[in-house]
Every structure is written in C-alpha cells, then in structure tokens.
Design a protein around this nucleic acid. Structure first.
Lengths: 252, 252
DNA sequence: ACGCATTTGTTCGTATGTATT
DNA sequence: TAATACATACGAACAAATGCG
C-alpha cells in the first residue's frame, strides 16, 4: 500500500519533503547525475532496475525520467536504454548556437583560436562565476568564420579551478563542439544558458578582427552558462556580424 | 482488447494512420480547437467525457492533453478543468515579448499607435502570409515607450481577410496585449512564432522616431507568427533601441 | 460551516507493442 | 529466436483543489 513515506533506498537521505513521489525520484536522479555516478554518454539503469532501487513503481520512475528527458538531461532510446545527454550528439550539436546563414546554408563555421590564458578574474566575471576576487580564470578569445569571412568574435571566461589543464594547444587540437570537450575532458557539462542580446557599435579592435568598419552595428550576445545545480560555469560575450547571418529564435 | 483501429467518434474520419492512439486523439483535439469548437478561455470537456467520446481510456486522453498543455495550447487547472490557452493570462502575458529593462524594472511599456491602414500587401509579405498578389493587408506601425523614451518601433502586417474591422480607433481603445485582442475580436490565436535577429544601423526616419542619431545600432527583430495548422498570420519587424534594454533568451 | 460532487494529479499494477542486440 | 528495454494502453484507487448546495 504505497506509503507516503520517503523512498528510502539511500541510507541517510533525509529530505522527506511532501512533493510528489516522481519529483523526489527526479531529484535523486539529478543528484546522481551531478555526482557523476553516470557519465555523459553512458546509459543509466533500466526503468525496472531504478524502480527496484527506489522501491517505487516503474511508472513513477518513468515520469521522473520523462521530465529529465524533456529538459535535455537524459535521452531515451527505445530498445537500448536511457542515456546521459551529451553535447556531441549529431541531432542536437551546437544546441546553444543560434546563428544561421541567411541563405540557409548549413556549413559549419570554422574556428580560429586567438588567445587562451590564465589570469585573475575581473570583478564582474568573478561575481557571476561566484569566484573570490583574485581567483584564477581562463580567458579564451576566438573567431568563427564562414569560409574566409569572420562572423563571430567570442570572448569567454571559465573558472580556473574547474579547467586546470586547459591550454591553447589542447583547444586547437580538439575537433568538435567546445562544450563536448568541456564535458569529456573536464567533467563540466553545460545544461542551460541565459543570453542577453543588444545591438552595439563595433570598437576599433573588434572592427579589425571582424573585418568591418569601426562603428558598424554588431549583435552583442552575453551568455551565462550553467551546469547542474544552477551553478554558473561560463561567461561569454559574442559579437556577431549579421550582414549575411542572423540569430534565430523560436517562440512557443 | 484494444483494437488498433481508428477511434471512430467522428463519422467520415478517414486518416487511419498508424500512429499511437494518443497522437490520434491529440490530432482530433487540435482539429476541434482549430474549428473553434472551444473558444479561447473556455474549458474543454473533462478527461472522463473525452475518453467516453473517443472510446479510449482516460489515461490516453490525459497523455494527449499533456502534450497540448506543454505546447501552451491548453492550460490545466486542478479541480477546475482544462482550458483553451489565452494571451490574456496574467502569468504568461507578453509571452512573445522578450525585451527586458537592464535594471530589471518590470514596468510595462506604453503603446503609441502611429499608423493603421489597409493596403495591398507587398510581394514579400504576401508570400509569407500566403496571399495572392493584390490581396488586402493591414499595416500597423507603433511605438513602445519606457516612460518618455521610445524603445521599440514595430511595423506589422496582417492578412486583410482575417482582420476585417481593424481600425486605428479600435487599436487605440484596446487595453491589454494586442494578441489578446486578435483572438477575442477576430478569432485569430497566435500559438507560435519565429524570429530572426540582426544588428542594423538606424535610417533617418527610424532614428527620428526612436530619438537616436542616424546610424545608431539597433536590434532588428523579424517575426513571423503562426496560428493553428502552422498558418502564418502575422509578419512583424521590430527595431529595438537597446541602450537600456536587452532581448532576453533562455537556451535549454 | 460543512460536506459532497467534480475534475485534475499521483501512484500502482498489468498487459501488450516495438526496437535493439 | 530469445532476451532486454523503452513505448503504449488500460484500469483502479486515492489525493488535492475547486465550487456548490
């Protein structure tokens, strides 16, 4: 007779919390993901096994997984199992890059790394990343190009503590999405991001790098990316040259 | 023994389609919504009644409604029923307006109607709205202001056939979101939109209206809004002055 | 003020279908 | 072919919110 009690699998779990069972299960799964019990790309136990582990019905586990799947934290594959989502999947590669070519061309942009260094985090960055002033940060500057034309100038900051061995060489050598490298090489998985967009005038240095006249209008995209537990782990500022590209957004 | 046959409620339904039952139910509900069987704000029949009507279990109806609810077409309210979504709800008002003040102020923007006239749709607009060249369209131009400062200059086109009695007077008189007026006065409900964002330089006329110098960078937002059946029913071009505001986006 | 009927929300259990290995 | 795992469908019971008499 389905008790309302806490699902007691784990020994000292506390947190009775009178939320629906499936929400409690979801929170437990989330905790396991955060703790790295299942790594990105790996499969998690079957619904049947999880139901046994948490002492609930399979349907309840299913509902918890459903929500995690719609939040893109898990991916279900019929007949195979449920997997921890990855930034490397073909289907959703560059999930966070909304820039499209006006003519619909799907050609991926080329990367050119301009700079990668460790330094003390500027105050505003430190505040967002929750670093103590003086803590180390990694700063990366890069260009994205469509053929020969530069289209995006990205500046990004990462907490130094999480990205210990990150060097320019390693970044240049990597093929595939940067966020995939972050999760496979540093165990930091970006699951959500917020962006603030504005139109700005190109400064002299930016203009030179993007091959536009100084003062040309550019789309500024300020991003803060979060990992499990809503922890900010990346601050990024992109300048997009939108002469032949646009930022595409879907409102639903 | 759950037949795979078509749920036969409607007489000549055809479309056997070997999709899951709940998807078929979802399609039937969608058709009723499109046909106006339940108007925006009204409640639809209870899950129990719908289950009887379609000759399926309550759980199957529930799953169909679940999907329509996550797509924002329906709103569930425990104890009360399930309702056709509206652009007037407090919670999700201005769902499609992503502009926020940098300082976080939530003060709603003031509207100032500049123009509202009927004319033949320009070729590009006609193509998107699927109008025959020469068909009438309504063109609206308006300004959104934060206090005294103009922030948004909107130009929008609507198919003339759907918006028969739309006049400047009626628009000025309306309080509340424009999309709410469209659905309550003209029976046209916007359910989805796509936007293309770029940075552009202000032209002379636009600069004057937005009180910025000519050539100032502005955020251009081109929107196409769709109603049921993916039918485009609005084309809009907004110019945002992003000196003290930004376009906020959430990537998940 | 109270209780009852209605409606959605949660949970369980079971059976069957479909995809993968 | 068989075993495994997710997907669909049904049914039943109780919880929680709402509204009405």
């Amino acid at each position: 007779m389905a008790e309302t009690a806490t699902p007691d699998a784990a020994p000292a779990d506390a947190a009775p919390s009178f939320s629906p069972l499936y929400q409690q299960i979801k929170a437990l799964l989330l905790r396991s993901l955060q703790a790295g019990e299942w790594k990105p790309g790996e499969s998690i136990p079957s619904e049947h096994d999880l139901a046994a582990r948490f002492r609930v019905s399979q349907g309840t586990v299913r509902k918890a997984i459903d929500e995690l799947a719609t939040e893109n934290l898990l991916v279900r594959r019929q007949g195979k199992g449920t997997f921890v989502a990855t930034h490397g999947e073909q289907k959703i590669q560059y999930r966070f890059l909304r820039l499209k070519a006006d003519d619909g061309a799907a050609a991926p942009l080329q990367r050119r790394l301009l700079d990668c260094r460790r330094l003390r985090a500027p105050a505003d960055v430190a505040r967002v990343l929750d670093l103590k002033s003086g803590d180390a940060a990694v700063q990366v500057r890069r260009l994205l190009l469509a053929g020969e034309r530069p289209v995006v100038l990205d500046d990004l900051w990462l907490p130094g503590g999480l990205f210990k061995g990150l060097t320019a060489e390693r970044m240049s050598a990597w093929r595939g999405p940067m966020y995939q490298m972050f999760e496979s090489e540093f165990g930091v998985r970006m699951i959500r991001a917020e962006e603030k967009l504005r139109a700005v005038a190109a400064g002299p240095e930016e203009a030179a790098l993007l091959a536009v006249p100084p003062g040309a209008p550019l789309l500024s995209v300020e991003r803060v990316a979060y990992t499990y537990g809503d922890r900010a782990v990346e601050v990024r500022r992109g300048l997009y040259e939108t002469g032949a590209h646009h930022y595409r957004n879907e409102l639903a």
